[in-house]
Each structure stands twice: as structure tokens, then as C-alpha cells.
């Protein structure tokens, strides 16, 4: 059977593969090459060595964007996962209105980042005006908090769904056995539920970490990096380097930043996956 399928590879693999080469492999390789070049268009690229990387690693805005993104990712990952897990635990207790709550909490996920950003931009600016505080785009700490709130509002529902699925897949026997042995509720939570939930926790942490680092739309719509690039995250910083400035050197810098960003995201993903996978309970 394997041989028969193999003969048909142009039908099965070729369409996807061709599109994949156009949409991923080729731009990726070209991007890697261009990160060592000075260029405005792809045809007119001159080799530039490591200059782009040196510039990227010494630019204050880029380093600030890195720390800002890192801090944001850590804070939002913790907030999202703690809240989502708590809600998931509450919703698996069969309390009143479970279905309604689940639907409502999940809803923001369906709305796009740009739209979410504007909704919260209007809402938070109004709240700040009423409190007599400076607007979002004028005070960086508010921008940061705003981003965290927005991200929580959007992502808690998604993670909650994953946690609920995880909790429901724990065999009821485990819980009953623990109860019969006289375990308290908190013991059941820490010793039975959480260890069996490790696969879900792995996925959620992975998703919220990479989502946090890759965040772009929400950042663009909520603060657009104001004031003075202080709330600019990595993705937006790269975008601005590419398209927000004129001059032959900037595209090369942007591409080098993008390569660094890519390495960072891939590395985080790998480390994180390895770290939590090793804690999973054998089933």
C-alpha cells in the first residue's frame, strides 16, 4: 500500500508543498540571506556582513522592546493561566450557569486583534479620563497594564477551554479513590488534578508564551508604541523598522532583528516544551 501511495505523491503532496515553498521556505531562506545585506528591494542587495546584527543588538529601542516584551509575556502568561485554571476548576464543579459562563468567557477569542485593540483603547481611555489620569498613549505604565488586561480578556477563555477538556479527561476513579482514602479538596487539587493536568498546562503555557512574544495586532491598535516607542513590543518594533522609516539601511536592520526574534521565539518554544514535558505524569 505504501508503494501505491508513494506513486501518487504529485497529487497528494505537490500542491501543499509548492505553496509551502512559495509561502514559507523560499521567503525564509531569502530572509536569512537578506539579514546580512543592505537593501531596499530584493534585487538590489549588497552584502553587508554582520553589521545589521551589530546594529540591532546595540539599538536602544530594540533592547527596550525586548525587555518590555519579556516582562509583558511573563506577567500575562501568569495572569492568564492562573485565572483560566481557576475558572476551569470552578466550571467543572457543575455549578449553575456553567454553559453560559463558558460561552461568554470564550467569546473574545473570535474577535480579531485589531478590533480588540480599538475596543479597549476606547474603554481604557474613557476610564483614565474619568479618573483624571493621562491617556494610554501618554504614559507607558498604563499602556503596559492595558495590554495585559486586553490579553487576559482575550486569552483566558481559550486556555479555560483547554483546561476544562484536560480536567474532564481525568478518570473519575482517581478522584473517587482519593476521596475514599480521605483526601481533602485541596489535596485532591494538588496531588491528583494538577499532576494529571500537566499535558494541558504544557500546551497552555506554550501557547500563551509564544502568543505573548508574537503579539502584534493588539499592540498596534491599543498603543501603537506610544509614547515614544516605550510600549513597543518586538514584533511592532521590527515592523516599524521595516516600514516606518526611510533610508537604505533600515530594511537590513529590520531583517536582522526579525531573524533574532525568530531564533528567540523558537528557542523559547523548545525550552518550554522540554521543561514541562519532563514533569508530565506517565499515563
Amino acid at each position: 500500500m505504501e508503494k501505491a501511495i508513494k506513486r501518487y505523491w504529485p497529487v497528494f503532496v505537490l500542491p501543499t508543498l509548492a505553496a509551502f515553498i512559495i509561502g514559507f521556505v523560499w521567503p525564509f531562506i531569502q530572509g536569512l540571506y537578506l539579514s546580512f545585506c543592505k537593501f531596499i528591494t530584493i534585487d538590489k542587495a549588497s552584502f553587508n556582513g554582520l553589521k545589521n546584527y551589530i546594529f540591532a543588538l546595540t539599538e536602544a529601542d530594540f533592547l527596550h522592546a525586548f525587555w518590555f516584551t519579556a516582562l509583558f509575556t511573563v506577567v500575562s502568561t501568569v495572569c492568564i493561566n492562573v485565572a483560566a485554571l481557576a475558572i476551569a476548576l470552578a466550571l467543572t464543579r457543575e455549578i449553575k450557569g456553567t454553559n453560559l459562563f463558558r460561552s461568554v468567557y470564550f467569546m473574545p477569542n473570535l474577535i480579531g486583534g485589531i478590533v480588540l485593540g480599538y475596543i479597549w483603547n476606547i474603554l481604557l481611555n474613557c476610564a483614565l479620563t474619568l479618573m483624571g489620569k493621562p491617556l494610554l498613549s501618554l504614559h507607558a505604565p498604563y499602556g503596559f497594564i492595558g495590554l495585559v488586561i486586553l490579553m487576559c480578556w482575550q486569552q483566558i477563555g481559550y486556555m479555560m477551554i483547554i483546561y476544562i477538556a484536560g480536567l474532564q479527561s481525568i478518570p473519575n476513579d482517581y478522584l473517587e479513590a482519593a476521596r475514599i482514602d480521605g483526601a481533602t479538596e485541596s489535596q485532591i487539587l494538588w496531588k491528583v488534578k494538577l499532576p494529571n493536568l500537566m499535558p494541558s498546562i504544557t500546551i497552555c503555557l506554550f501557547l500563551s508564551l509564544t502568543n505573548g512574544f508574537k503579539l502584534f495586532d493588539q499592540n498596534l491598535a491599543l498603543t501603537n508604541g506610544d509614547p515614544a516607542h516605550k510600549t513597543e513590543m518586538l514584533a511592532l518594533n521590527i515592523y516599524q523598522t521595516f516600514y516606518g522609516r526611510s533610508g537604505p539601511q533600515w530594511k537590513g536592520y529590520g531583517q536582522a532583528k526579525a531573524v533574532l526574534f525568530c531564533i528567540l521565539v523558537v528557542a523559547i518554544g523548545l525550552i518550554q516544551l522540554k521543561a514541562t514535558r519532563s514533569k508530565e505524569v506517565q499515563q
Binding site: 512559495i22 525564509f28 530594511k251 529590520g254 526579525a258
Partner: peptide, 20 residues
């Protein structure tokens, strides 16, 4: 390769992809 492409951020490709 497909799995790898899931993790790569769009910013890595945006310029070359739109040119392609």
C-alpha cells in the same frame, strides 16, 4: 519542516513574502 513553520513568527517572512 511543517512543525517548524508553525513557530516561526510572521515578521521573519513579511518583507520577502510580500515581495514573492
Amino acid at each position: 519542516l511543517f512543525v517548524f513553520s508553525m513557530v516561526v513568527p510572521f515578521q521573519m517572512l513579511m518583507f520577502t513574502l510580500s515581495a514573492t
